[in-house]
Simulated scan of single mutants.
Amino acid sequence: MTKTLLTSTALILLANVAAADATVQSCDRTVTFDAPPERAVSNDVNLTEMMLVLGLADRMVGYTGISGWKTLDEEMRAGVEELPELSAKYPSKEVIVGADADFFFAGWNYGMKVGGEVTPETLEPFGVQVYELTESCTHIMEKDKASIEDMYNDLANLGDIFDVEDRATVLIDGYRAELASFTEGLETGEPLRVFVYDSGEDTPFTAGRYAMPTALIEAAGGVNIMDDFEKSWATVTWEEVVERNPEVVMIVNYGDVTAEQKREFMMSNPAFADLDAVKNDRFVTLEYVEATPGPRNIQAIKTLAEAFWAE
């Protein structure tokens, strides 16, 4: 009887230990978490929002990389009101370690730079584990073009890491159903040619094949004119834009230059006078948090589709 009881107790303990472990794929790394993080830091507004929709604010010690470039809307302000912003832009290693963090949710060019001060390797000696945004993996490895599945993958992996798999599953299933219901009833024609205008006047900064807007545009019935540009977010030339003659311009709204100012720049510049998008004044605006991987991607697809096919 005693032996059987001890054996059963041991099995229960082993099961509990196994349940606490989570192994996920983070870009080209396989990362195991012995227990859910308790002092997490996220970088950028979209990554922070992923943490919030999973109900993880109480597992966080702060966030970074928002106020230096963007502003929080009312919904986001409410979500992070109890949390400090540890750094207005990209955090230093000292900032993350100084917060006694045990987890950093960031991405390449979303808080980390290749060869930079803050990387999974530089944080590891301080006991800080890193999970990398899936969309950003293209900066360090070969990857398929951007997909809405990238966002789902991040939510699922965060669910595993923080032991909130059920929450993640409910969210993902809800997003899938909402998108399917919307796109099934969407009447589209020949895919519209769309240019993503992020920023820049001398040379435009735009979304290439590996950036989330490519996936959002396709889901809404368009095609990114830079779909063959083997980059994520990068600079092209205006000559390339003019040559490909977009029918719609998708403006990413953030920073000091407003969406209306970006539209006015294109509308008033003689070099763009013959673009179909300019001739027909067809512009649509997405907020940065909608255009980058995160919970607002489904609404972003709806916004684009309504702009594409309203007529």
Rank of each mutant, 00 (worst) to 15 (best):
A271K: 13
R39F: 00
W309M: 11
D73S: 12
V80I: 14
Y210P: 05
A273P: 09
T9G: 14
Q299N: 13
Q261S: 10
E306W: 00
P91Y: 05
T183H: 06
Y152D: 10
K279G: 01
E75K: 15
T134S: 08
Y210I: 02
D166P: 08
D44S: 14
E74T: 10
T23S: 13
D73L: 12
G98F: 10
M1K: 08
D228G: 07
T206S: 13
Q25G: 00
G159C: 11
F229C: 08
E121N: 10
N224W: 04
G111M: 04
S199L: 02
E178Y: 03
K3D: 06
T2C: 05
N224T: 06
T122F: 07
E149Y: 00
M76S: 06
K3M: 06
L11E: 07
A207H: 05
A35S: 15
N297F: 01
D202Q: 14
I66T: 03
A271I: 02
F229N: 01
G62R: 08
T134Q: 13
A99W: 03
E82H: 15
T214P: 05
G65L: 05
A99L: 05
A259M: 03
E264F: 07
P293Y: 07
D58T: 06
N253S: 15
E74D: 14
E38M: 03
S87V: 00
K70D: 13
P293Q: 05
L304W: 04
F103Q: 08
G294N: 08
F283K: 10
E38F: 00
E49R: 11
D166Y: 11
E264Q: 14
A219R: 09
A146C: 09
M112H: 09
P295N: 02
M267N: 01
L52C: 05
V196A: 04
I148H: 06
V128K: 06
V242D: 01
V114Y: 08
S136M: 04
F126T: 09
I12N: 07
M267H: 02
Y152H: 15
L56E: 01
P295F: 02
I225Q: 07
E74C: 04
G159A: 11
N280E: 07
R209G: 04
E243R: 14
K143C: 02
E117S: 09
E165I: 10
G221E: 01
E117A: 15
Y197S: 06
A106D: 06
A234C: 04
D227S: 13
Q299F: 00
L186V: 04
G62E: 03
Y131K: 12
A273Q: 14
M76G: 03
S199D: 07
N253Y: 03
P191M: 00
V236T: 15
K93V: 12
E74I: 03
A211Y: 02
T9Y: 04
A156S: 15
Y288C: 07
G55E: 04
E184I: 01
N43S: 13
A291K: 06
G294S: 11
L286K: 10
T258G: 11
E149A: 14
T206V: 01
